[in-house]
Design a protein around this nucleic acid. Structure first.
Length: 823
DNA sequence: GTCGCGGTGCTGGGG
DNA sequence: TCCCCAGCACCG
């Protein structure tokens, strides 16, 4: 559940949260934009007609959506929608209000489809499918001529630059330089008035630009890559900051009612050239070259100034994939403390907006967003005015695309407001962008030697296990192939027939049972093969994912994950390359391979998190919202037993206490197995997993799982009521993750504004934050972190009286694997 | 016949 | 119909 939705659930209004000044600025700027739009609605329609004349591709869409678009564009209706808040006409939504609980995605779906009647939705879908047919054509237009001309060659070259050896790099670099120079030359000499490379401005022009930046009503920008493509192109693969050449920025001048600029706002691409005459479009070259002459140095300083102005300007800054922009700026600024400059930057990112509106969308391209969310879809034919051969259309294309980006973002912002997501967007998601950018720049050191040693050792063990498996199976087979394994276990050995438990889960339409851990566990006593397979899989997982996988992600002895803000439907963050959120917590035990047994113990413990080490003079500090799901469940359900658990002093581990409560046995008799069982049952209730899922999780039959669930819900009756009310679908986890996001922003800002603290936020593992802190600062920083995180409980209760206090547990250590509790 | 590529399903780690 | 990511086999 999103924080925003949670607000309506518990009657807590997020509006009480002080808006950041930036959010307020955006809010007021947005408001003025709406006013302009509405006062010129007549004009608007006219523009549509004009645009139609110049070869509109999708007139149907324009015509059919006119009514709805008028309604949406009317600021009065917007305001009334926003103030109506949770009153939503769809039947589903009124149910949501009654129960107070609906999964966030469902709520959002119902909200987002609200302005469209069902008929319109159908129509719209048809239109969208119609749009798909012309997709290829559109791609051609959107990419621009230079892109098209060089795309193939460039792709290959870029690959070489990234992965090639150093000598190759040099030669390819030159080739790129040439191509990119073509683009640049063109950028400078472009025919449209104010399109300029700021390297070639004289002092007077520089002064004018500085002034224009101050006066701008909005800044719209995109990164430009070495091959001349931008973030707005169709090719998403170029999102490597190392390939960034510079930034193209459109300075929207004042938006005034009745001014000619309205055309720029409302009309489609074909007219953008005329409409945007007053707007500057600048190119900021950011690529580092080895030879910094005096001129280059002067340019670097001026570019720095312009970027700094961009980061701190009063007007909205619009950027598709703003995180990449922030990262680029950080790398351009270079020095260690420069991240403080970006800490408060808020860039309007249409991708995040679109994700809030529809979280089920996979990371969309600019083109996808335009097709899906832009009211005036005719704009997608932007490049049609350019011929095939002309390079003149490069800047024109970029400029036109920036205009589209601007209007797309405005449309999305209106939708956010209409859906009640605006606050969430401004106060949570947007401020998170620089946090993630800085986090990606913060590396974590890894013990490479240890890892390489581990890889060899695990490899040897895998070889042994493979041989054992082949021996007991009586034939060679591919041990990782579930297909082949299934044939041996159930076709040849017929173990499922020997198994006393009749029903083994079958995946899909398979004839034979699954080869999952649970099944293999149940077959262990019948044959030696299942046990060997189980160990093989465990060792293999560690080797491939956590040792070799991590080694592959390493750069200069350290790793840094890529954080995806818009990758989940629950609102959580996700990480990849490596997925630091998924690195095993529990150490595993393996039998040391024969040839290592002289030097090592017979049994070896391997803990993947131990491979992460803090840099010299620093220590890891992990801060964890302890059992946050369970606490929120207690609060929301109001279950007396559960509340008692948290209100009483917590000497023992909560899950152990819970187990003893549930099973009515003394805490000291609770075994780890019992404890794990409790945890799974709790999660299955909180996350809404079904009986089958729980059965698989616990490795028991569905009947047993049902018994566990029923006895648990019998003991904690209110939870049952709550779960029923929530249809067992309420994604509480999402809300917990949002709380963690808020903690990240708060702590990050505190560090950024502090004159003494130098802690680095390096990872977020759902409800846990990982910092690297200077040894001497650990005590001071620990207090800051704990206070900040615990203070967030005020977001959970209007009267500042959360029935269950939030608890933050802190731990420190030189390696991430051996963190010990602090205090 | 072989190789490379993208898509899919299974399994298992995290929460 | 719990949601993520990663690695692997398998298929077309």
């Amino acid at each position: 559940m999103k924080m925003e939705n949670y607000g309506t659930c518990v009657g807590f209004d997020l509006c009480e949260t002080p808006l950041s000044s930036v959010a307020q600025k955006i809010l007021s700027a947005m408001h003025s934009g709406d006013a302009v739009d509405s006062e010129n609605l007549g004009e608007n329609t006219k523009t549509v007609e004009v645009t139609n004349k110049c070869n509109v591709k999708y007139p149907v869409l324009l015509e059919d959506r006119k009514d709805q678009s008028l309604e949406e564009r009317n600021p009065k209706s917007l305001i009334s929608q926003a103030s109506r808040g949770s009153i939503r006409p769809s039947s589903q939504s009124s149910r949501a209000k009654l129960t107070g609980q609906l999964p966030a995605d469902q709520q959002q779906k119902s909200i987002s489809s609200w302005p469209l009647s069902s008929g319109l939705i159908l129509q719209y879908n048809q239109e969208v499918s119609g749009l798909q047919k012309t997709k290829n054509k559109r791609k051609y237009f959107l990419e621009g001529t230079i892109n098209k001309e060089n795309k193939e060659g460039m792709k290959i070259k870029r690959k070489h630059v990234t992965y090639g050896n150093s000598s190759e790099k040099t030669s390819k670099h030159m080739a790129l330089e040439e191509d990119a120079n073509k683009v640049e030359t063109h950028l400078i000499s472009g025919s449209s008035g104010h399109f300029c490379d700021i390297r070639y401005l004289d002092d007077l022009a520089k002064g004018q630009l500085t002034e224009a930046l101050k006066q701008a009503a909005a800044l719209v920008l995109t990164l430009m890559y070495k091959d001349g493509s931008t973030q707005l192109g169709a090719d998403q693969s170029q999102a490597l900051t190392s390939c960034v050449k510079g930034v193209v920025m459109l300075l929207k001048s004042h938006v005034e009612a009745g001014s000619g600029l309205l055309d720029g706002l409302a009309c489609a691409g074909g007219l953008a050239g005329e409409s945007g005459q007053e707007d500057w479009c600048i190119y900021i070259h950011m690529e580092r070259t080895c030879l910094w002459g005096r001129e280059q140095e002067a340019h670097r300083l001026f570019a720095r100034n312009v970027l700094f102005q961009t980061l701190t300007c009063k007007c909205p800054v619009i950027c598709f994939n703003a995180k990449e922009f922030v990262k680029t700026v950080l790398q351009f600024f270079g020095d260690d403390s420069s991240w403080r400059h970006v800490a408060n930057f808020v860039g309007l990112d249409p991708r995040i907006a679109a994700w809030l509106i529809d979280p089920s969308d996979a990371v969309p391209s600019f083109e996808d967003l335009v097709a899906k969310h832009h009211e005036k879809s005719s704009t997608v034919k932007v490049s049609s005015t350019c011929g095939n051969s002309s390079r003149n259309c490069v800047n024109q294309n970029v400029r036109v695309n920036l205009n589209i980006l601007y209007r797309l973002t405005m449309d999305l912002c209106s939708k956010l407001k209409a859906n009640g997501l605006w606050q969430l967007f401004c106060t949570l998601e947007l401020p998170l962008v620089p946090v993630l950018a800085v986090m990606e720049n913060n590396k974590i050191q890894v013990n490479r030697e240890e890892m390489e040693r581990m890889s060899v050792l695990l490899g040897a063990r895998l070889k042994e296990l493979e041989q054992e498996a082949h021996f007991v199976a009586g034939e060679q087979f591919l041990i990782m192939s579930n297909n082949q394994l299934r044939k041996i276990l159930f076709g040849k050995l017929k173990l499922h027939l020997l198994n006393p438990r009749k029903t083994l889960p079958r995946p899909g339409t398979q004839r034979h049972p699954s080869t999952s851990e649970a099944v293999l566990n149940s077959l262990q006593d019948l044959h030696p093969l299942p046990k060997i397979i189980l160990e093989y899989r465990q060792v293999h997982k560690i080797k491939s994912t956590f040792v070799d996988g991590l080694l592959a992600c390493m750069k200069k002895g350290s790793i840094s994950s890529t954080w995806n803000q818009t990758g989940t439907v629950t609102g959580r963050l996700s990480a990849k390359h490596p997925n630091i959120q998924g690195i095993s917590k529990q150490p595993i035990q393996i039998t040391t391979p024969q040839k290592f047994q002289g030097k090592e113990d017979k049994i070896l413990m391997i803990s993947p998190r131990d491979l992460f080490v803090s840099s010299k003079g620093h220590t890891f500090l992990a801060a964890d919202f302890s059992q946050i799901e369970l606490r929120i469940l207690a609060h929301l359900s109001g279950d007396p037993e559960l509340l008692k658990l948290f209100q009483e002093s917590e000497r023992d581990d909560v899950f152990s206490t819970l187990t003893s409560q549930w099973k009515n046995i003394p805490v000291e008799h609770v075994t780890p197995v019992h404890r794990e069982q409790t945890k799974k049952v709790v999660y299955s209730v909180v996350y809404g997993a079904g009986k089958e899922r729980l059965a698989t999780c616990l490795g028991v039959t569905v009947q047993e799982a049902t018994q566990f669930l029923e006895s648990f819900l019998q003991k904690y009756k209110k939870i049952k009521d709550f779960a029923q009310a929530a249809i067992a679908q309420c994604h509480q986890k999402g809300s917990a993750a949002d709380l963690c996001k808020m903690a990240m922003i708060r702590i990050f800002t505190a560090i950024a504004t502090s004159s003494t603290l130098t802690a680095r936020l390096t990872a977020q593992i759902h409800d846990e934050l990982l910092f690297e802190v200077e040894d001497s600062q650990v005590p001071e920083f620990a207090v800051l972190v704990r206070d900040t995180m615990e203070s967030l409980q005020h977001h959970w209760s209007p009267e500042l009286q959360l029935q269950v206090p939030l608890k933050v547990s802190l731990s420190t250590g030189r390696s991430w694997g051996c963190l010990a509790p602090l205090q």
